[in-house]
Design a protein around this nucleic acid. Structure first.
Lengths: 215, 215
DNA sequence: TAGATTGTTAATCGATTAACAATC
DNA sequence: TAGATTGTTAATCGATTAACAATC
């Protein structure tokens, strides 16, 4: 269907648009225009127009977009299936926070299990999600069509887990470990590192300060 | 001193370099070249050379960089003071995960307290850090020179907290809430949203798949 | 028709990459 | 000196913005 490749810069803004539309639809707004969105989100008007055109392209001059249609097009960008199955690997602090977080469901992400190798944790639950043994990871993924893995294990475990994942037919990894993921097999990887986020903020702050002090 | 403005794209790579140098120094390597770094991190050679030149500029032809000097220059990008004081606001799942995470210290970030408005939590501790009442937030920040705030409260609380923060002389906010932070006052904001990260990964996956199916 | 909003084409800006000159 | 690595200048690429034509 939609076989245009979507520029990376646009992808970064998809969650923003989705969220905005959700609120709009909740408030019973039927129509929406690029101008509205751009103003409310603080983005450029042309930028939004261009983004929406790439993503949906169903805008009508003078009228704008039908909010629910636009939402659908944004959503179909995220997944083809009814639901996207996700598992969390690592039942430590981060894994637990992820399992408890309930903002994923709304976008069709279904967290169906948590994996760990700690015998004290296996068998227990985190907010309704069973903690299973890493030994079952591969079979579980294959049987349940798991598409995405959130990886939150200690760094030294990363390699082992990745070896298992290679054979688990998953499509993407959200990597919360410090280790670089070295997987070919056409698996998408996005790294999330709390310390990095803090560092980037700090550098921006210092830049900002130096700049304001005058050149 | 270093009053060059550092491009955003370079800032994104600073944590990567820092981490790489840490490992290198741990293994007693004294010297390092752009080529080494670019190969190990999978980046372009010229890109690394240019980045390091902007960040440090102390490279010597034929020799390369002194690893520890380079590390220092990267670190001085992060902060001018000895330590950067940080507080966490919100002692929920995310706040807790952040407080427990101990990867911040290494880069000079000092998490000195957690704030919440839940009387059941105030007075307790999360891994050594006291949970204090939000009422004390402003004074605490002023007295302790808090530079950065990690904000992990329920969305509806965001506005209130921001009003307090405006008067707390902080310089940056790492925003884990869904709400847009509307603060002028020269405060840097970086938004972190778990759902967004997952969405971006999912879009990339679908893009990738469509692309591979041939145009 | 007139006005508002769309999509598109061209210009600008910033980041990456390629080519090369400088130097320990 | 020759070789390796640096920093810099110019070319390319991608994203944003500005200007405008198309249309409900």
């Amino acid at each position: 269907m939609n076989n245009k490749i979507i520029p990376k810069a646009v992808i970064e803004r998809v969650p923003l648009y989705l969220d905005y539309l959700d609120k709009l639809i909740d408030n019973d707004n039927e129509m929406v225009s690029s101008k509205m969105i751009s103003q409310d989100l603080g983005l450029g008007e042309v930028q939004v127009r261009k983004d929406l055109n790439i993503i949906s392209g169903k805008g009508k001059p003078k009228i704008g977009y039908i909010a629910s249609d636009l939402r659908n097009d944004l959503e179909s960008l995220i997944r083809n299936e009814e639901k996207t199955n996700v598992v969390i690997i690592g039942a430590g602090k981060i894994g637990e926070a992820l399992a408890n977080y309930n903002g994923f469901k709304k976008y069709g992400f279904n967290i169906i299990a948590v994996f760990d190798n700690d015998l004290n944790k296996i068998g227990k639950k985190i907010s309704d999600k069973a903690i299973l043994s890493i030994d079952m990871l591969k079979d579980f993924c294959l049987e349940n069509d798991v598409e995405i893995v959130m990886l939150a294990v200690p760094s030294k475990e990363t390699k082992n887990v990745c070896d298992i994942l290679k054979e688990s037919r998953i499509k993407g990894i959200l990597n919360f470990t410090k280790s670089k993921i070295d997987i070919q097999e056409n698996i998408c990887v996005r790294n999330v590192d709390m310390a990095s986020l803090l560092i980037m903020l700090a550098v921006e702050i210092n830049n900002n300060l130096n700049y304001n002090k005058g050149e």
